[in-house]
Design a protein around this nucleic acid. Structure first.
Lengths: 358, 358
DNA sequence: GTGAAAGCGCTAACAC
DNA sequence: GTGTTAGCGCTTTCAC
């Protein structure tokens, strides 16, 4: 019998019923004679018994798989290096559970597909990867009772969607505060992709800190961006053609900063001598440009782990109220911002870990 | 009845048996009265019926899910931007099938886990992401009868593993040939990670083309690398300290080239004026450095699609003999290699598509 | 043309 | 302490 043994066969060899066998194999040793337990366990091992997942799911009404849902051609996902770390964190956490991870590509132009898929009892929970402001995924609660948590998008409370995200506002505030500490007061900003919640959070934080220091931002130095290299290039072109230039420019993410730096290099604007530049996210690219980019890093691995944690909790107890968590960032000071002590600005110490790399 | 309807319920509402209902829903309309077919179909739709996957799997002995297996902390995977394109291609192709994709992280220090998982009948096939030279995954056939195909690693035939890969040798040959056409004859090479089949294929191709042109490579210009930025940096340090320098350096991949370029920049070696540089893979980084990197691009999306194609074929017909496919690359000529017509070298036209970007 | 019924492999009341 | 048994929701053989 080289075929896969079934529960029944294990029971037969162990000389007891399938119930007993099933119970013991599930770790319910309570009430069974130690020798029975021992016997069942060893027989199962001998035979190389493995429960059939489909049968188990059917009987338990649990699939033991969770879905990782992301939108087709999601710009953030296909271009940023952090997605892999998130997935890594998710898988890592899942390793010690019974759950498997299923990738579900969501096509926004045919949303029904997703809801159908999810309702097949095929998944016990879902992780939504960076749902954008216009994403049909936000309506999750309206379509499904399956537990879900949003990753890297803290969506408005009205959607009642649990979320785990990096703390965009606090991190950006710390970065801006630090740049001010370096003596910069004339600061430009390149925004993120307008369809992402994080873009607005980052911009808001930027404006808030300036306001706190009585600095009125010059709107012509606040340029549209798209969280992409190309967007950074465009922004640089637009900014550099202005009469008066800021002494520092903050970009909503590293890709943007990389594009911005490219144009500067091409036009002979030296960073950081002529212009200081900072990014956000600590993308792999941040280290690949010269000068190396000052930015803020996030623990994306932890984001993935925590997302699973929250989801499991919801699966265990569906009554769990939805909750939104934020993870702190870490300032990474490299060489793209130069100190410029021409005016003294009062700045409170920010509360972010910081790391200096020269 | 707001609960999910079952087959039985559809049958009841349609006024026929579950057999009939099942048959019709599976598209077996043959032999049924058109009105019956019509009735069943519409009732199912009305009720929003969705078959239960677990039940279906159990009865059909098919899970309709395939596994994407990759090693934990796989260096290539976590650092290269191409993995996402492969996954994209896979999902895209899967969209038109009944199959789902499950991510399976393989921990080489506990291989049993994987074989057990796979034997649970949980997957109908597996896609192995870039198994390395020492990977336990290569022994797949010894452990499992589940169909599998290796992605981006053409493994030795003895493993009897189907594979889909980019044509490393042909592509590297074309690149080398093109560099020779530019007049370079003193060429250095930074190798890839020694645990990857592709690294050896690329190096082999490099040496072959030189040999074909009667050029004896200088071994001190052929440096170890690891397919990483750090590896590229180390290689640059080692190469630049030599008395005589080549006029061009080819790197086994773009990451390596990026690291190499960084060190050059730091030491005042100008690219391409003092030294020409080329990469391989057309990573997102290739465009982020100055000068933009001449390299060869691969259609990773197609790799993913084809992998699925091959796997499905094997699942349909387990008798299918294993096969190894190669996809052609595309030369991407940017600005990091400068023409150097000091000697004329006979070079046959290479057979790769080529694209010039300035 | 259509349906009854026997599983698929496992779980969990409930009985002894 | 252990076993009997009725499902879980669907597929498929075979009979009518």
């Amino acid at each position: 019998m080289t075929q896969k043994p079934t529960l029944r066969e294990v029971a037969r060899h162990a000389g007891c019923s399938v119930t007993t066998t099933s119970n013991i194999l599930q770790g319910r040793h309570r009430g069974y004679r130690p020798e029975t337990v021992e016997r069942v366990l060893s027989v199962a091992h001998m035979l190389g018994y493995r429960p059939n997942r489909a049968a188990q799911s059917l009987a338990k009404k649990r699939s033991y798989t969770i879905a990782l849902v992301f939108e087709r051609y999601h710009p953030i996902l296909t271009r940023n290096s952090y997605a892999q770390h998130v997935v890594d964190g998710i898988l890592e956490r899942l390793l010690t559970t019974e759950y498997d991870l299923k990738m579900v590509m969501f096509n926004p132009s045919a949303p029904e597909h997703l809801w159908e898929r999810v309702q097949e009892g095929a998944v016990d929970g879902a992780l939504l990867l960076v749902p954008a402001i216009d994403s049909p995924l936000l309506e999750w609660r309206r379509h499904s009772t399956v537990p879900a948590v949003s990753i890297n998008s803290t969506v408005p409370a009205l959607y009642r969607l649990s979320s785990i995200d990096i703390d965009n506002e606090t991190a950006m505030q710390a970065l801006v505060a630090w740049v001010l500490e370096q003596g910069h007061t004339e600061i430009g900003f390149v925004k993120g992709h307008p369809l992402h919640w994080s873009a607005h959070q980052r911009e808001r934080a930027f404006r808030r800190v300036l306001a706190q220091h009585g600095i009125v931002p010059r709107e012509e130095w606040i340029i549209e961006g798209t969280y992409s290299i190309e967007g950074g290039r465009l922004a640089a072109v637009r900014l550099l053609e202005q009469a008066a230039l800021p002494t520092a420019v903050l970009c909503a993410n590293d890709l943007t900063a990389v594009g911005f730096a490219q144009v500067c290099l091409e036009r002979g604007v030296r960073i950081p001598d002529d212009l200081s530049l900072a990014g956000f996210d600590d993308d792999a690219l941040a280290l690949s440009i010269m000068p190396t980019l000052t930015t803020v890093a996030h623990n994306m691995h932890a984001v993935g782990r925590q997302a699973v944690e929250m989801l499991l909790e919801q699966i265990e107890d569906p009554q769990t109220p939805f909750q939104q968590h934020l993870l702190p960032g870490r300032l990474v000071i490299r060489t793209s911002v130069r100190p410029l002590h021409k005016g003294v600005v009062q700045v409170p110490a920010h509360n972010l870990t910081q790391e200096v790399q020269r």
